[in-house]
Write a protein that binds this DNA or RNA. Structure first.
Lengths: 150, 150
DNA sequence: CCTCTAAATGAAAATAATTATCATTATCAA
DNA sequence: TTGATAATGATAATTATTTTCATTTAGAGG
């Protein structure tokens, strides 16, 4: 039997969520990819490793991880939601997206984060206070046209 | 017959898109609401005014307006896309969203735009250059938990 | 003001993502 | 180890969105 849990273990505990094989696997898969995976993508990969896993469980797990702030659900406009790990230690770098309105191409960018950090920190605090929100994450998207679609 | 067109007329011309009753109506509806309307919401409203309009046309029109940058397609994570007019003269104010991960409540905020403007202008230019994108719009979302869901 | 052609429309069918149901299984606190 | 209960997974159901295709219409050019 594998060692249970990881850096996210505490968050499970806080919420009274059980640590199960499917949940561990979904996190592991998202942690090891740099793709924008749909629920179905995750399911296929999960199924290769552990064929016992059901699609429904993948959906439920992704929803739960999203609520817990471990995963970010992103929708690029092509009809299926994508999921990305948020800030795992040693995982993907903090990034945002550039989206082509015509061909739906996605570019991840990780640059210019110093400026962003400064802006986010400032705004997040003010918003949290004004609207009584506990802010756990943010997303920034730029829309436009890539070279080919102009 | 109604007068054809509006502030968006030129953008139609540029693209060789025809100005039709359904298209005018969809724009008008989005312009007059401050809700986040789904395609179905728009259809229902449009249908009240002109029962000849079909749901398919509403979908097609929204898609087209999104590509033209007249409308922004937003997905909050509840399975249906929402649509908002972008910067119409005298229309809705530039704003962004605060989204509760548990109950999916949405707060529109229009504050702190000076800081944003500064950050966006800086970043947009650098991104456009580096990735050869023509950037026409952006979206910022903050995720977290509202008072009730904490 | 006509005419004609490509663009746009709408009804219905098809598709595909996501969610609900419910009997079975497995986690983990005691 | 055990038992209450959370989690699972197969299947069915739902629902947003897209495709198809025959019909209509906008608007450029005469």
């Amino acid at each position: 039997m594998r060692r249970r849990g990881g850096w996210w273990q505490d968050r499970f505990q806080d919420r009274g969520a059980r640590i199960t094989a499917p949940r561990e696997l979904v996190i592991e898969i998202l942690q090891e990819t740099s793709d924008h995976m749909s629920a179905s993508d995750v399911y296929i990969k999960a199924h290769e490793i552990n064929p016992g896993i059901g699609l429904t469980t993948v959906y439920r797990t992704l929803e739960m991880l999203t609520e817990m702030g471990i995963v970010q659900k992103i929708e690029f406009g092509d009809g299926k939601a994508r999921f990305e790990i948020v800030d795992s230690p040693g995982g993907k770098k903090h990034h945002h997206h550039l989206i082509c309105l015509r061909c739906k191409a996605i570019v991840d960018y990780t640059e210019f984060m110093e400026d962003e950090m400064e802006y986010i920190k400032k705004t997040e605090g003010k918003l949290a206070k004004k609207y009584d929100f506990e802010i756990t994450d943010h997303a920034i998207s730029f829309f436009g046209f890539c070279r080919k679609c102009r």
